[in-house]
């Protein structure tokens, strides 16, 4: 399958600070790709290089099989993390202006803007100024601006931030629709649940380097069904017992934990039942959130992953 976007040993340094360090990954045509990483990991810098705002110091970026150039930018759509609209201008004017910069004729731009606004339930705001809209509505307008010129590749930085559940649903459907049309989408987000549900592949970056990459299934399979999810009432002192539990993520009445090597899950269940009431007990693949935290905090992620797949 051809690649929509390839990063090959891309580096970018600001003064002394290495923002992106020999980063490589490839996004297949038609997939939804998750670019993950903690704050300051180099996600924004990578994205800016993908849309030609900044130029890499070294390495190569290819889009649609060619070296990235201005001509290709019209085929890319970009939703920045923070709103990027003229607050004093009307919604429709904003959209038409941005679409025209991407080479769409004014009448066609207006037509497409109208139909997208209707689809995202914003039709009555067409002639409102952007500043009059709520944060979530602005986010939807921003999304329209990113997709209106019908790009083949979309880069969406935190597209769901600030959206209520209903709007999230509308947006998610729109995304899946685009995917069905064969578009390629790159997500940058911290929201692991979204990534788990939507993404085909991921790349986790930390300190400008790729620390975990591949298809979502494959990445999770590396860890095996080794984690335990517990829903409980009471207390679980055993979580603090390093001999039995390597790590855990406790929410108060729900906990996901990683048993210590050689520890039998049944014994853990027994120990847990002594101090609290267990409502659910399940052996699962580690959630992406778990993998994210373990990888970012663990320091030597790939090694861990290998270990885990042996276990």
């Amino acid at each position: 399958m051809p690649f929509t976007l390839e990063l090959n040993q891309v580096s970018k340094t600001f003064d002394e600070f290495v923002a992106v360090d020999h980063l490589s990954f490839a996004i297949r045509e038609g997939e939804i790709f998750g670019l993950l990483g903690p704050n300051g990991a180099g996600k924004t810098t990578s994205i800016r290089m993908m849309i030609g705002i900044t130029i890499p110091d070294s390495g190569e970026i290819r889009a649609f099989g060619e070296p990235l150039g201005r001509r290709l930018l019209d085929r890319i759509g970009y939703l920045p993390e923070e709103r990027g609209l003229y607050k004093k201008m009307k919604v429709l004017e904003n959209l038409v202006f941005l679409a025209r910069l991407k080479g769409i004729a004014p009448a066609e731009a207006a037509r497409r803007a109208q139909s997208w606004l209707e689809r995202l339930e914003l039709a009555q705001w067409t002639n409102a100024k952007v500043e009059e809209l709520s944060k979530g509505m602005q986010q939807k307008v921003q999304f329209i601006a990113a997709v209106m010129h019908d790009p083949d590749f979309m880069i969406l930085d935190e597209p769901f931030s600030g959206l209520d559940p209903a709007s999230s649903l509308v947006l998610k459907d729109a995304l899946l629709d685009l995917k069905k049309q064969g578009k390629t989408i790159l997500f940058s987000t911290h929201r692991m649940d979204t990534v788990e549900r939507l993404c085909d592949s991921i790349c986790l970056v930390n300190h400008g380097r790729s620390v975990l990459a591949g298809g979502l299934r494959e990445v999770k399979a590396r860890y095996g069904r080794s984690n335990v999810q517990l829903e409980y009432e009471g207390t679980l002192p055993l979580l603090e017992d390093r001999a039995r539990v390597t790590s855990f993520n406790d929410y108060g009445n729900y906990v996901e934990l990683r048993p210590a090597e050689g520890m039998d899950a049944q014994q853990l269940l027994k120990a847990a039942m002594e101090t609290s009431r267990i409502r659910r007990f399940e052996m699962v693949e580690p959630s992406l959130e778990e993998i994210f935290i373990a990888t970012v905090e663990g320091g030597k992620p790939e090694g861990n992953a290998v270990e885990a797949s042996h276990a």
Binding site: I53, R70, L73, D74, G84, Y86, K102, A145
Partner: peptide
Amino acid sequence: IEEKSSRVVEVLLGAVT
């Protein structure tokens, strides 16, 4: 400053130099 602080500039630079 307006374009910079509203981040419009990031969107614009995806289309113009």
